[in-house]
Amino acid sequence: MTQLSLTFDAVNEETPGPKWAARWNRSWPAYEAWFIARGGDQGPSRDQCREALKRYMPELVATYDRLVIVAGGSDRAARFLSTWCPPTYLGGCSLAAVASKKDVRLVRNYDLSPQLNEGLLLRTKWSGRTVMGMVEFLWGLSDGINDAGLSIALAYGGRSESGEGFGVTTILRYVLETCGTVDEALVALKRVPSHMAYNLVLADASGRTASVELAPGGGMTQMPIAVATNHQSGKTVAERPAFTRTFQRRAHLEKLRVKPRKLNRQFLKSPLLQDRHAQGFGTLFTAEYNPKKLTLGLTLNGQRWDHGLNDFAEGQRIVDYSQRSVAEDAHSRTEAGPGLVDWSQAALVDWNAVAHDYAAGNGRAISTYFPSGRLNTQKVA
């Protein structure tokens, strides 16, 4: 059975040093295996990767060079850390930003398997600006805030095609290291290409909010309202929409009419909160950013953990999602009806394989993981 727990660490290290090195040593073996298996060694050379950073995000080059040294300096580590034309990866999320005359919030649900998240909240001052956010790929960010009050979060855009560009988590790091307002961030996002389709929501201390769609290989479309889930506008087709429930979640977000301070509550209940952790799609955390107060409130399986950019305290939380998952499985059995998966056999499934295949975009039917001859072949999406 898949391990349904995740350890969250809050770490403060202003420049890359022993704390980041410890995290690298802990996480790199798994990332290296993923990088090799997904064709990373056939990608751009080390020099090409650094040149791409120098061209599009020159302000990050000094930090990148230091990280490569701390990571041991290998060719593969250097190419991995650049995130230039990396292997494809997927995920799920719901995002929204709401502002009033006196208040503003950006809230994000991070939906995936517990085994596919680093569980690291990192506060840094790598390039002179203080940044706090949830780490992906060891130095990129899936969401975060800086000392100017600029906040940003990402959601997978719903299609696995890729183009020449950077991993989006590095782009979010770049925005928070170099920009102070939503308008400045939009200029940067238009210029720096993403290697896959992603949706971003932004908010700043002035109350300005925005949502954009990034296209594989470059290109940005600004959206009319500051919400996002896991599909994009236009003629593009979302992958596994029934499984991710992306259209239902976005429809709910578009109808919301709440004050900023009440936005977070919406993300702690259906249809935004996901409890299918064993299937690789459960809400691991809800992040509530307050750009005016420079704070982050993390909700971890119902428990709140607050952090301030200027009064950051290191700590650790261990979260067990198994009870929530068990409750969801029981509900699935009673509501499944004819032609759906029989969840009574869930204990016999390698859920780790399910989660990793989903994250890799392989698109298999859930029933193929169950004992043969016991189920039909109904697809999850």
Rank of each mutant, 00 (worst) to 15 (best):
Q3V: 12
S5I: 02
S5P: 01
S5L: 03
T7F: 01
F8Q: 03
A10T: 07
N12C: 09
N12I: 01
N25E: 14
A33H: 10
W34R: 08
I36Y: 00
D41M: 09
D47G: 03
D47N: 11
P58Y: 10
L60A: 14
V61Q: 06
D65Y: 07
D65M: 07
V70K: 10
G72M: 08
G72P: 11
R76Q: 15
A77P: 01
L81S: 09
S82K: 04
T83V: 05
T88I: 11
Y89L: 14
L90H: 09
G91T: 00
C93H: 00
S100T: 06
K102E: 10
D103M: 11
V104N: 03
V104H: 07
V104I: 13
R105H: 09
R108V: 12
R108G: 09
N109E: 02
D111G: 03
D111V: 03
S113L: 08
P114Y: 11
P114E: 12
N117P: 01
N117K: 06
G119K: 05
R123L: 12
R123Q: 13
T124M: 12
W126H: 13
G128C: 08
R129E: 06
V131Y: 11
G133A: 07
G133P: 07
E136M: 07
E136Q: 09
G140A: 07
S142G: 15
I145M: 08
I152Q: 03
E161M: 09
L176E: 06
C179K: 06
G180M: 02
T181L: 05
E184Q: 15
R191G: 02
R191K: 13
V192M: 03
V192R: 00
S194M: 05
H195Q: 13
N199K: 02
V201D: 02
A203Q: 05
D204C: 11
D204G: 08
S206W: 00
S211G: 13
A215Q: 13
P216E: 15
T221N: 08
M223C: 10
T229A: 11
Q232V: 15
S233A: 12
S233M: 06
G234I: 12
E239L: 13
R240N: 11
P241K: 04
R245P: 01
T246C: 10
K255C: 08
L256Y: 06
V258H: 07
K262D: 14
N264W: 00
Q266I: 06
Q266W: 10
L268C: 14
S270D: 11
L272R: 00
Q274D: 02
Q279N: 08
G280K: 04
L284C: 10
E288C: 15
Y289Q: 15
Y289W: 14
K292V: 15
T295S: 12
W305Y: 10
D306W: 05
D306A: 13
D306E: 15
N310R: 10
N310D: 14
F312N: 01
R317Y: 01
R324H: 08
S325L: 04
E328A: 06
H331R: 15
R333S: 07
R333I: 15
T334M: 12
A336R: 15
G337K: 12
P338I: 09
W343N: 09
A346K: 11
A347P: 00
A353W: 02
V354S: 02
D357K: 04
G361P: 05
I366D: 06
R374C: 04
Q378A: 13
K379T: 06
K379E: 05
A381N: 07
A381C: 04
